[in-house]
């Protein structure tokens, strides 16, 4: 449906995009996640047609819109929702929602059904943008964008200006609207949790190119490198030596996804680790406990290596001085090399 092939973009002498490629199947939702300044907004603007790529192609529904020929933004059939909604301040809600519709289609009924589609009260139709809350503005912006039934919807951090509770609710309702309408969607965000929970496919971007593209679970469990792993969520990292599908660490032997043998950083997600009381050489000592209320930080010590922090539920807490070992669901991932930080 939407295909971006090898797109580069240079702005004011800076290479902002360095050969970006990805495909978004029809009706699915993709997220591009990365720190600010990584080029994700520029990528979105290239798809929308606000910027022309320096090289590479953008194809929408089989039609090349950037590349050999350039299709202007208004002929791409691409919807765009900006960070703060970018409502037209001189128009009412009605005027905003109906902006892209042919004049004869701007009927009260049509406007009302669009507002209802984004869970807004149609009574707001005659309000001015500055009389709406932030969440309402965002939904009006979405209603305005979906009114034209675009083939592709681009969302540029549309939830970041909202506070936490509102953000989750708005995200869910907007996600539902887009999926129901079967609109191919690309979301750009710097919030990895948002990306992982919202999208069918996530691309991690940094320094103008994609580090990894894949399904949310795949990315979370099989991050391609340590930086990506850290960016996508909390990690437990310990140094070890890999041989076959086992990593030998100061805290015991752990199962790993098989890689090259040798020294490596062993990465675990906190949720895959449990502590079991144990004895023997391959065990660590609980040095202290930090009470977090709903869970506990257990700090483990072993000879000659940095301490390790493991979260455990508050109902089964080992005592300081106890000997424990790590029990792992699935397997850890080993990234060759020594740990970057102590």
């Amino acid at each position: 449906m939407l295909s971006v092939q090898d797109v580069t973009k240079t702005l004011a002498g800076q290479q902002v995009l360095r050969g970006v490629s990805f495909d978004v199947p029809a009706g699915s939702v993709a997220a591009v996640v990365g720190p600010s300044g990584c080029g994700k907004t520029t990528l979105l603007r290239c798809i929308a047609g606000f910027e022309t790529p320096t090289s590479g192609t953008v194809t929408i529904d089989g039609r090349e819109v950037s590349g050999a020929a350039t299709v202007p933004p208004h002929k791409r059939g691409v919807g765009y929702v900006a960070q703060d909604g970018a409502l037209f301040p001189h128009l009412t809600v009605k005027g905003n929602v109906g902006f892209g519709l042919p004049r004869r289609d701007r009927t009260p009924g049509r406007i009302a059904s669009l507002l209802e589609a984004v869970s807004l009260d149609p009574a707001l139709a005659s309000r001015r943008p500055h009389e709406l809350s932030g969440g309402q503005q965002q939904r009006v912006a979405l209603a305005r964008a979906i009114a034209l039934r675009p083939k592709v919807m681009l969302l540029d951090e549309p939830f970041s200006a909202l506070d936490t509770g509102l953000r989750a609710r708005t995200r869910e309702s907007i996600g539902a609207v887009l999926r129901d309408a079967g609109i191919t969607t690309v979301l750009v965000t710097h919030d990895q949790a948002e990306a992982l929970s919202f999208a069918d496919q996530v691309a991690v971007m940094s320094g103008g190119s994609f580090r990894q593209v894949g399904a949310p679970t795949q990315l979370y469990t099989e991050a391609i490198d340590l930086d990506t792993a850290r960016f996508l969520g909390e990690t437990i990292e310990l140094s070890g030596v890999v041989s076959g599908s086992t990593a030998h660490t100061a805290f015991g032997d752990l199962p790993v996804v098989a890689t090259e043998p040798g020294e490596a950083v062993i990465m675990l997600r906190p949720s895959q680790v449990r502590l079991v009381r144990a004895s023997g050489a391959a065990a660590a000592t609980v040095s202290r406990i930090e009470d977090q209320g709903d869970h506990q930080h257990v700090i483990l010590a072993a000879d000659g290596v940095p301490e390790l922090l493991v979260d455990v539920p508050s109902w089964d807490v080992p005592q300081p001085g106890e000997r424990v070992s790590l029990s792992v669901s699935g397997a850890a991932i080993a990234y060759p090399g020594s740990p970057a930080h102590a």
Binding site: G49, P72, P73, H74, G79, G100
Partner: peptide, 18 residues
């Protein structure tokens, strides 16, 4: 701001109409 023109273009308006 320029963004508003871009939004208008994404809603089907050519540049001049935006």
């Amino acid at each position: 701001p320029r963004r508003l023109e871009e939004i208008a273009m994404s809603l089907g308006c050519p540049r001049w109409l935006a």
